[in-house]
Design a protein around this nucleic acid. Structure first.
Lengths: 243, 243
DNA sequence: CGCTTAGTTGAAGCGAATCAAAACTAGTGG
DNA sequence: CCACTAGTTTTGATTCGCTTCAACTAAGCG
């Protein structure tokens, strides 16, 4: 459940050859500076469903998703849960950076798909940021991006109808997943199951399912199985997604 | 409606004597460095209800709330609106910092009470951050705080009942408003009207009103009029606020 | 004092939740 | 290959919490 295996020790050059270096905040560093980053990095792999950290645990690390998808969850004992964010390739985790020692992770972080993380101790990453201020600038930018997303999602959770929520969700995933490869590939896979989608958009599984079938019957999305999407009509989906 | 009067031009020493300097991100600067900040600052006053900026407008400035309360709103044409954040004394505004020129403000920002802002052009503030890296560090910390709040609110909007939402709202306001003065003063004023509260917690005015009367009848909060709160039973209110 | 705006209270309607069961999927082993 | 199981997704019937609509009350103000 908790944990994940450590990958091969940081061999010289892992960061240098990292495929996401330029999209992640690491892209702030010049190629000759990257070795300093590489020296501090640990890698860790989790398989789908494994928990990286639980809400309430001590937050010791800062990290970057180098592969796969993770979810940030806050849950109540009574079964209610809310996904407050999805982390895709090149997203960061560890928003307690800057807090004094003893900081506590506010969310549970769980691997949605198989996941690879690139981890740094908070302290060390912090001194790295002092050494390379462009790193901090880039992280600030990312933090603002996350903030903007969270606020957009607040609108969804506070004011949108079931159909608008599901449509917005599909657009969100499409945008994030497709940005990885070459641009306008129409086919992609939803990394989440129905239950996870429900926890993300603040509905129940049943309602999500009903809205999915509706969009399918109206031929706005074409499914292959339950997670694979063959094509989406962005224009009409955007209409249905509300403001 | 839009705008607000410019206050007296920055006389030498305004920042130096600013009462919120230490709580705001400006506290990162040593007293002898503050004059650089002061040289770039403009002040602006808005009266309650005035709009500082509309969603979609060009985002030219970064700023700090030096007095009063502001709200961040995203609204649909059809009347639906969602408040995505409240800005109290020493909070910052302008989360497009770091974006290329032509950045657009995603939210409407409106004065809830009479408001005083301390403003900087984005460019100038950015170079100030490069000159004083501790400023950027402190802003990053604040951005993470906002992010944590937004995610907490996502849980409220996605999963909480009407009663839990209103209870959580009261606790939130109590925490923010009371931190200004000496700590455990029990009496405070809700800066928002019922309609604004509704837009903040994702309910209707009527439902908010019903929950308020419930909390009043159960003697968990004691009102004086409609906005002034004489005392709250934090323990019982926290129970009602859910997780 | 009427007029307006903000807040409260009540009754009816509706959208999503809940409860329940069927249809699919995927994995396992005879 | 098929029967069996466990888990996920879909579909249907009913219920419930919040919204909507409507009327009323209270407070501020020319």
């Amino acid at each position: 459940m908790l944990g994940g295996r450590a990958l091969a020790p940081p061999t010289a050059g892992m960061c240098e050859t990292c495929t996401i270096r330029h999209s992640a905040i690491c892209g702030a560093l010049k190629i000759e500076e990257v070795s300093a980053l590489n020296a501090l990095a640990r890698r860790r792999a989790l398989s789908a469903g494994e928990t990286y950290i639980m809400e309430g645990d001590a937050a010791l690390d800062f990290g970057i998703v180098s592969n796969g998808v993770a979810k940030l969850v806050r849950g109540a004992e009574d079964g209610r849960a809310q996904i407050v964010g999805l982390l895709f390739q090149s997203d960061f985790l560890g928003s307690t950076l800057g807090e004094e020692d003893g900081a506590v992770e506010p969310n549970t972080i769980e691997a949605v798909t198989d996941l690879e993380l690139c981890l740094f101790s908070r302290d060390r990453f912090q001194s790295l940021m002092h050494r390379f201020p462009s790193l901090e600038t880039r992280l600030l930018r990312r933090a603002f991006d996350e903030l903007r997303f969270a606020r957009e999602w607040m609108v969804l959770l506070g004011r949108k109808t079931a159909e608008e929520r599901v449509a917005s969700f599909l657009l969100h995933v499409a945008r994030r997943v497709q940005s990885r490869g070459c641009h306008p590939q129409e086919s992609f896979e939803i990394p989440l199951g129905r239950a996870e989608i429900a926890d993300f958009v603040g509905l129940t599984i049943e309602t999500v399912s009903r809205q999915m079938t509706r969009l399918r019957k109206d031929e706005i999305v074409v499914f292959e199985g339950t997670r694979q999407i063959v094509s989406i009509d962005r224009a009409r989906l955007t209409e249905r997604a509300g403001f």
